[in-house]
């Protein structure tokens, strides 16, 4: 297991004048969200969030608007102070550090990208990207070099001296990403970065972003309200509902074993072709009694799409192998059920 970069332990956020009292009541009496609103006139933003993100992982936080995902992620750079709980970055408890140290961490270790770009309209693209460095009082020549390099990473070379308003939405968001990368942070916080873009640009940027993060090995917390996006980008996904993390798991986990009806409803419409792997739908070789002579073979990591390609030309099942060893078979009924999302007969 690689090093844990971000670790949240039982983080709560309650908004309102009487948040502390409400928190005590939640601790002692275990009251829920509606009672907190009724008794203390406080809104529960995040309830007991606990998770760890290892280095290099893209951790998606998925939820509908108002589910508390933006609130949760703002705890990590303390744009929002938690009501209770512990937040650690590389082993340091961020709620304990001083104001100066916090600013240093924000400037050096955490890059953030916002839904509405939030570029400064009066500064050139280059000066926008260089702003985190300017805050740290890096010399101008160094700043310019770094920001030109970051703009190169997002394919914006040649636009350095333009003003943000001269760029399209997709380009502006790439400037936002370059700005987040400029100070070479450990952690990237992406707050619905692609939500305001049109679908084609969004797909393009998702791929570009995924490749970039893989190359740079950045630990990323990626907020989205779009499960498709979470599945495309995320190594793991946390699904939030009303401030609670309902389920954490890999895309395949979530699609194949939804934790409750809420998640099930979400994953219903998701295409399983690229997600579901052979090993999760195969039956063991010994329990299968039909003919296997001349059947096609596939690795256990093959997805449904590949299995369909193999199965379409034969009446025989597909034999699944692991390291050259036959371990199971996928019959036509199993394959079809797998496409449906693992519904049982």
């Amino acid at each position: 297991m690689t090093e844990t970069v971000v670790k949240l332990t039982d983080v709560w956020k309650i908004f309102g004048a009487r948040a502390e009292e409400a928190m005590t009541a939640v601790r002692n009496e275990g009251i829920g969200k509606p009672e907190v609103l009724e008794r203390f006139n406080c809104v529960v933003g995040v309830q007991g969030a606990t998770f760890e993100v290892p280095r290099g992982e893209i951790f998606c936080i998925m939820g509908l608007s108002g589910s508390g995902k933006s609130t949760l992620v703002r705890h990590i750079n303390r744009l929002i102070e938690p009501t209770s709980g512990k937040i650690e970055i590389l082993g340091h408890d961020v709620s304990q550090i001083s104001e100066t140290e916090l600013r240093r961490i924000r400037a050096q270790q955490i890059g953030m990208v916002f839904q509405h770009m939030a570029l400064m309209p009066h500064r050139s693209v280059r000066d926008n990207v260089a702003y985190p460095l300017e805050i740290r009082k890096v010399s101008k020549s160094k700043r310019w070099a770094v920001s030109d390099h970051a703009l190169g990473l997002v394919d914006l070379t040649g636009y350095e001296d333009r003003l943000p308003k001269e760029l399209s939405g997709g380009m502006q968001q790439r400037v936002g990403i370059a700005r987040a990368l400029a100070s070479d942070p450990e952690i990237l916080l992406m707050d619905e970065p692609f939500s305001a873009l049109d679908p084609l640009i969004r797909l393009q940027l998702q791929d570009q972003f995924k490749a970039l993060v893989a190359q740079l090995q950045k630990t990323t917390l990626f907020i989205t309200h779009d499960l498709d996006e979470a599945i495309r980008i995320g190594h793991r996904i946390a699904i939030m509902k009303d401030g609670v993390i309902v389920q954490i798991g890999t895309p395949e986990d979530i699609v194949m074993n939804p934790a409750d009806d809420y998640v099930r409803e979400f994953v219903q419409g998701i295409s399983k072709l690229k997600l579901v792997k052979a090993h999760s739908i195969m039956e063991p070789l010994d329990s299968y009694s039909g003919p296997t002579e001349g059947a096609p073979r596939a690795d256990e990591g093959a997805d449904l799409d590949q299995l369909i390609d193999l199965a379409v030309n034969t009446d025989l099942p597909v034999i699944i192998t692991d390291g050259g060893q036959d371990i199971g078979v996928v019959t036509k009924p199993r394959l079809l059920r797998g496409i449906q999302g693992g519904k049982n007969d």
């Binding site: 924000r106 400037a107 509405h116 702003y131």
Partner: peptide, 12 residues
């Protein structure tokens, strides 16, 4: 949003 961005990048 722009103010928040500046704060997120460590502005005093």
């Amino acid at each position: 949003s722009i103010k928040e961005a500046a704060v997120a990048f460590g502005a005093s």
